[in-house]
Design a protein around this nucleic acid. Sequence first.
RNA 1: GGAGAGGUGGCCGAGUGGUUGAAGGCAGCUGCCUGCUAAGCAGUUGUGCCCCUUCAAAGGGUACCCAGGGUUCGAAUCCCUGCCUCUCCGCCA
Length: 428
Amino acid sequence: MLDRRFIRDNPEQIKQMLADRGLAYDLDAFLAREARRRDLITHVETLQAQRNEASEKISRMKKNKEDAAAEISAMREVGENIKRFSEELKILEEGIEAELLQIPNLPHASVPRGPDAAANREVRTWGQKPVFMFTPCPHWELGEALGMLDAARAAKIAGARFVVYRDVGARLERALIQFMLDTQTQRAGYMEIFPPLLVNRDAMIGTGQLPKLENDMFKTKDDDFYLIPTAEVPVTNLHRQEVLSKEQLPIKYAAYTPCFRREAGSYGKDTKGIVRQHQFNKVELVKITQPDESYKELEALVQDAENILQALQLHYRVVVLSTGDMSFASAKGYDLEVWHAGSARYWEVSSCSNFEAFQARRANIRFKDDDGKIKFCHTLNGSGLATSRLLPAIMENYQTKDGGIQIPEVLVPYLGGKHMITPNGKLG
RNA sequence: GGAGAGGUGGCCGAGUGGUUGAAGGCAGCUGCCUGCUAAGCAGUUGUGCCCCUUCAAAGGGUACCCAGGGUUCGAAUCCCUGCCUCUCCGCCA
């Protein structure tokens, strides 16, 4: 959510932003409603002041045993007017608030302008695509052959876009999660969080998933709960409605959670393998910072995510998202894309964003600055990382000619000291 | 699921339908004082929004005693609904 005062004072900049993001929106109508709102407030508060003054007088008269009947009946009409205009104000305010929740964040000046992903800019790459003396298999074939992934039985118990991790597959998944959490908490200084996987509507609004993405979320039928699409939601909202001290900042959290997404509208897309599932595992990094440090922290966050890929010796590239491709709440974002040798393409394995005060304003996360003023924090988050894109990268990039998989060095301690998944699907 | 208790300022805690932003205490801040620490005295201490200004500050107004409704000239105080916390019982991992 943007600051209404900022919108009022900078309408041209907002219009440009909406155009950059490819949105048609009648900002002038919004500004007119906002002006009407302020008029109404002035009107209502004038009446309230009048009422307060009269109340004091009535109270005084009663104390002196004077007759206040005239004053009381005069105030009856004022009271009714207050009620009437307050109601109008409330309806107007709710409408404005609802619209405010629909306006996306303002992109940072360094974000490339462009209508879609084609305008994204590659920032850097790391490592090399692995070279094979044979044709590398995609992970879904490897997973089935080695008994690591079972899509058919997952369909039986849940449906399409689910997978069962099996035997060494389950073990490798768990090892990855633990390795990532250990790295982020022990090396990079994040505090581990394991949050609820069901959250209320306010939390979803706080981080910006709602009201826009209602159709992308799983929700419970009898209670007003949503399954989290990312740990960003519960973790960022930990500090909703709080005023933090400056000494607490930056707050750095790392959370492993399953993530749940309906993937509505993606029918027939990415149906092979585990890259697009209704449920997947992710370690998420969340930061809450002072405003003037958030961009420095964004770069550090990206580095923390990259460190996982580097430790696993996986080739990847870093892309800065353009105005047309960045997410609704983001002011600037980078995607980390890891190479999958089997499908011979890059896959987004992490998305790191600085939301500036956009989420903080929605969730009301503030801090007390040195000047004693209370200001909005900046929030950031990034995957560190998603296993549904990472596990395939390992399987495909580390596969051997005989049909086995070599285990990346850093994971060996997490897999009982074993260095290989043998062609019969066992650790060896 | 059943029964009961409760939600007041940074914290503890009082509160009558009418100068209550809210007694008192603690903590914090500012002065004064005492030759260190302590004690004492006086003052001060929230947030949102609107207006007016503005580089900023100050100022004026209004709202906020869990949330949302209602009664009333007037509600922290009365009524209704919801949420949350605690205790006991039941159930359960």
